[in-house]
Every structure is written in structure tokens, then in C-alpha cells.
Write a protein that binds this DNA or RNA. Structure first.
Lengths: 341, 341
DNA sequence: GTGAAAGCGCTAACAC
DNA sequence: GTGTTAGCGCTTTCAC
């Protein structure tokens, strides 16, 4: 381990600039109420010594950390098989660093981790938390609320009783699904199926609701539960062709599911979109553009979701912000037309 | 913002347990050299008060943070179009949390960010850094070395002069490439092409070297530079078919490139693997399994790479570890046989 | 406007 | 073994 050279302290800067520690502190923190010539002297001393404030000492007194935790519960490895979180993290990171906050990443792996994470959040290491909780039965959100830390959720939390008092950011899953199904209807399709995601996740449930909004009480055999994976999409598509061989359109709950469905359709000699039109959800580029044919899909702006989550939290953390009740933010989706429908 | 209730301090626990702060501190930090009955009393007091140590205060005196920075330089958005980093992060996170370290994620966006990151690393917020630097001309590694922070790199750094004194973890890109090409040779193919990645990245350069190790000075028209994307793979494949229509095998520098190549081959009526055999690299599951036909590819254990990076760094951070010179760790790859070759 | 001084909560010598 | 004490580097009253 490298023996790091002794870092200069406030004291050292003060000595060099010929002022008191208090003055240096003021300058370093914005310089309000310090006369110009002194500011200049201190700035130079800081520069020459390469002074960087010690964050630990600062936090000790201010009780703020300039850090936000991002908690990603990962009940399934699926999560990491797609770039979804990477994009969201990017959005979060951009917004956070723009306001000089650090991002502490907490990945959870199964139940045991929950207490670890809860302890950490309760331990006052961070000023707030951004939490991705995917499943209805996830105990994590409850633990976090218990920690009393300002929090914004990614995706509408399923456990919430009417969303009261919960801050979250989500895509308009239901509206996007409606648009997808309407597009298929507009193509003249009548036997439109839906391959769902895991229905214990609100995103999947909302997309199914959107499908039903448009289709009403369609033949229940047209709805096949799946799991957001290509393999699941294949299985669901096979089951669907079994039950309703006359299907002429498929709305898949995400692009991965759609890619599996496409493979089965090709294998069975059905032409896309001539025989069966297919629409996905997400517009996950490497997938949606790589399928054959390229996928018509509902795009959600994932990076923007991340950015807004961060912005919401930082606003709440800022003592100058007037107290307002937490609320949900729902972002619009757009249909991207490619060759599959 | 929630007004957090005053957190109990060591002092409070000491008072409640009827001992000194020092004793509580000892118990909290492992309890060595404290007699059992006292340990028990302190534990109970900690429990009852819900005491959680203040990390800022602790860091201030120990000069350790129990935190490691993960720096991901992102000159291209491509990085986030595949699950590569997500997997690596997962491995890193597992190892870090297993040893009670936090993960501070630093995503960089262009040049301006470099100074920000360098400042942060120099600022003594973290005990060490894990850095992903992808490009030959990236100034970040230099800045980081300047900060004098213990560091492990992900992927062989291209700027390194003979790898001396640099700790890194990488896959055996060159060996994996050799195995891929040999497999194609074993299939009786003779006109084996290579669609490269961006050659300013060591991974891409190493794979090309591996190809050349086996193919010697093959027709240079069989090597087409590409960029690790499906679109790039398409373009490269088209160029290749132009130059050498008689090609009977393709080794693509990664699975995304291979997926683009497959699409072009299908579109041109070439059967895979009968007319042209195709091998990829990465074994990125959602891609490799989703292509048609499924991809034979060189697997690298990305999560394990992350885990080893973290382990290496933590070992170096541990004062009990005897000082040893930094070194590179190269992980083996394995060829995964599917239908494309 | 500027400086002196009092801690923030903790660990680590050093006494006992 | 256990307690006492002196800081770690910073912000922030409070005098001047």
C-alpha cells in the first residue's frame, strides 16, 4: 500500500495565506463575507498546496455527506442481462455529479443482504436513497422507509397503498401498451395476443392493463404469462400458437420477450409482419435493432428516468426547497416504427 | 426533509452500559481484550439504543473509509449498450460487500469529467480505485496514477509501458481468439476472416493478434476493422463479401458484431454454418442465444473478472499483506459450441 | 470582516 | 482489562 504523502490541512493553508482557519473555511465554501484581497490570497495558497478538503471532517460537523445511495434489488439475474440499469445509472450519475454528489451503489443479492442494506442506510452514510424495487413482495422498501431516509423509487412501487406519500418515477407503461395495441388494431389485426412479463412487477401488470384497456375482455387464451426473457418469450409463443394458431399479432411485454417470439415464429414458418405482426416494449437498442426483422417497439427514455429520479431526490434534500408531499412522476412513451409491425 | 432523530453516540452507549467510551469502542470493533460480562452489557446497550457508529468520525481518525471507487470511463455510449459492465459491477460489488466495503461509482462523460474524477480520487474519499479504461489515448489512467491511490485496472491498459508496475485483470483475449480460429480450421475452413473491434482498445488488438498467431500472414482483405456494434458488424460483413466472396468462415471480435454479420449473411442467402461458419466472442447470453442460429463463441467470465479485481485491490489495501509488486492477472476463456460453427 | 475557540463522534496511546 | 485523554480536520458561534 502506498504511503500517501501527508495531505495539507486547513491549518496549513491558513498559515501560508497568513489568515485564520475560519477565513480559509469561508473561502473554500464559497467565500461570502470575505474581502476580495483575502479571498485571492487564500485561493492562491489553496492552489499552491493542492489543498483538498477532508470530507470526513466536514461531514462530521455538517452531518451531510454529499452522497446518495442507489439500491438495486436483484431478485433475478435477468436484471443484469439487459442494459436497463446501466442506462438508468448513467442518468442518475449525470445529475448527481452535476450537483457535486457522489453515487454509492448498493447491489443486493437475496434476503440476507436486505438487513445489510437497511443498516447501511440507517447508519447515516448517505443523505438519501434511490431505490429500484421490482417485486410486490419485496421487504426492502419497508425497511428503507423505516430508516427514515429521503427516498425516491424507480418504478411505481407495488406495495404502495394508493401511492400516497411515495415519491417515484415511472414510465407510462399502461399508456404505452395501449398505443402498441392500437397500432396493431390500426394494421387491421384482430386476433392480438399479449405475452406478459412477470405479473408481480408493476411494469408488467401495467402493460397488461393497457392491453386490456384496448382489447376489453378478449379471449383469455390470447394472454400468456411470461418472464421478460428471450427463453420465456419462446415458450410463451409456442404455447400461444398451440392455443390460438390463428393469432395475427403479438404485443410482447418487452423486447427480449419479443426476440424469443420472433425466433419461434420464424422457426414455424410464419412471416413477420405479413402473417403475424409483433410489437415489443423498451426499445432496447442492441436487441430491437438486431432482431430479424427489426422490432417495432414502445420506447421509454430510461436515462431520463434516472436523471429525474436524482433531481427529485436532490430537490428534497435541499433545505431551501419548500416542503412538499412526495409524488409520482410518470414519463411518456413513444412508439418506434420498424419492420415487425 | 425528514428531521432525523438524534442518533445515539458512543458516549450514550457507554453511559447506559456503565463503562467508558473506549470499552464500547473496543466491543464495537470486535471486542478483543474485553471481558465477557462487559462485552455482553455493551452489546445489550448497543442493541437497546440502536447505536450505529458514525462513519465520518471513524474515518477522520482511522484515515480509512471502507470505500472503493469504481471508475468507468465512457468515451462511447456503446459501453452501455451491453451488459458487460453490469456483470463486472456485480462481481465487484459481491466481493466488496463481503468484506464490508462500499462501492462508489464514478461514471465519466467526456474530458471535463476527468479533472473532476481526478480531484475526487486525490481528495481521499476512498481507499482505492478500480478503473476501466478502454482506450489507448485515455488521459485518465495517468491522472489516477498521479493521485497516488492504490488502483487495479479492468482490462490490460494500453498505455502501459510493458505492463510494469500496473495491476490489472483481463481475459485471455489472444488465447481465446486463437482457440476460435483453430476451431474454424478444425472444421476444414480455409478462408477464415476476422471482423475486428476498435483497434485502439487492447481487447480488440489482442484478439486480432490471436487471429494472426494462427492464420499467419493471411490475405489482408480477410481482416476488416469494425467497432463492436451490430451495425458495424453488418457493414464489415458487407465489405468482406465484396472483397472476398469466397469466404467460408468468420471470426467476429464480439457477439454483437457477429449478430450483425449473421444478419447480412442471411440476407445474402448464405447458410450458416454450411456456407459460412461464424464464431463470436464474449458469450453475452441475451445476444449469443438469441441469434439465428445460436452463436458459437468464446466465453469470458466477466463477473469473475470483477470479483478478482476487487479481491486484488482489497488485498493491496490490507496493511497485513506483505508488499508485493502489482501484476496482471489473465483469466482463461472457453469456447462455447452452439450451432453457428 | 476576521479570528479564537468549542466541539462534531470516534480511535488509539498511555496510564492505572 | 479498563479508563483517561488527546487529537483527527473541519465548521460555526461568538467576540472583537
Amino acid at each position: 500500500m502506498t504511503e500517501t504523502a501527508q495531505r495539507p490541512t486547513l491549518e496549513a493553508v491558513a498559515a501560508r495565506a497568513g489568515v485564520s482557519r475560519a477565513t480559509v473555511s469561508r473561502v473554500v465554501n464559497g467565500g461570502d463575507g470575505v474581502r476580495e484581497p483575502l479571498v485571492e490570497r487564500v485561493r492562491r495558497a489553496v492552489e499552491e498546496l493542492g489543498y483538498v478538503p477532508n470530507q470526513a471532517a466536514r461531514s462530521l460537523v455538517t452531518r451531510r455527506h454529499g452522497a446518495v445511495a442507489v439500491v438495486i434489488a436483484e431478485p433475478e439475474t435477468r436484471v443484469f442481462a439487459d442494459p436497463f440499469f446501466a442506462l438508468q445509472l448513467r442518468g442518475i450519475s449525470k445529475e448527481l455529479t452535476a450537483q457535486d454528489n457522489q453515487l454509492v451503489l448498493l447491489l443486493t443479492e437475496g434476503r440476507d443482504d436486505h438487513t445489510r442494506v437497511a443498516r447501511y442506510l440507517a447508519g447515516g452514510h448517505v443523505d438519501g436513497a434511490l431505490v429500484f424495487s421490482l417485486h410486490l413482495d419485496d421487504p426492502l422498501p419497508g425497511l428503507i422507509r423505516g430508516a427514515g431516509l429521503p427516498t425516491v423509487f424507480g418504478g411505481r412501487p407495488g406495495w404502495s397503498d394508493g401511492d400516497a406519500g411515495v415519491a417515484y418515477v415511472d414510465s407510462d407503461n399502461r399508456g404505452g401498451a395501449r398505443e402498441a395495441v392500437r397500432h396493431l388494431l390500426g394494421l387491421g389485426r384482430t386476433r392480438i395476443a399479449h405475452l406478459t412479463g412477470p405479473l408481480d412487477q408493476t411494469s408488467a401488470a401495467d402493460r397488461l392493463d393497457g392491453y386490456r384497456d384496448v382489447m376489453g375482455e378478449a379471449d383469455p387464451r390470447l394472454v400468456v404469462e411470461s418472464d421478460f426473457t428471450p427463453g420465456g418469450g419462446e415458450r410463451a409463443m409456442r404455447a400461444l400458437l398451440d392455443r390460438r394458431p390463428d393469432v395475427d399479432a403479438v404485443f410482447a411485454a418487452n423486447d427480449l420477450t419479443a426476440s424469443g417470439a420472433l425466433r419461434v415464429l420464424r422457426e414455424q414458418g410464419r412471416r413477420v409482419p405479413e402473417d403475424v405482426a409483433v410489437v415489443g416494449f423498451d426499445d432496447m437498442l442492441p436487441v430491437a435493432e438486431a432482431t430479424d426483422p427489426p422490432l417495432t417497439t414502445v420506447r421509454q427514455d430510461i436515462e431520463e428516468m434516472g436523471r429525474i429520479m436524482a433531481r427529485l431526490l436532490l430537490r428534497r434534500l435541499d433545505p431551501r426547497t419548500p416542503e412538499e408531499p412526495p409524488a409520482g412522476v410518470v414519463l411518456p412513451t413513444t412508439l418506434v416504427h420498424r419492420a415487425s409491425a
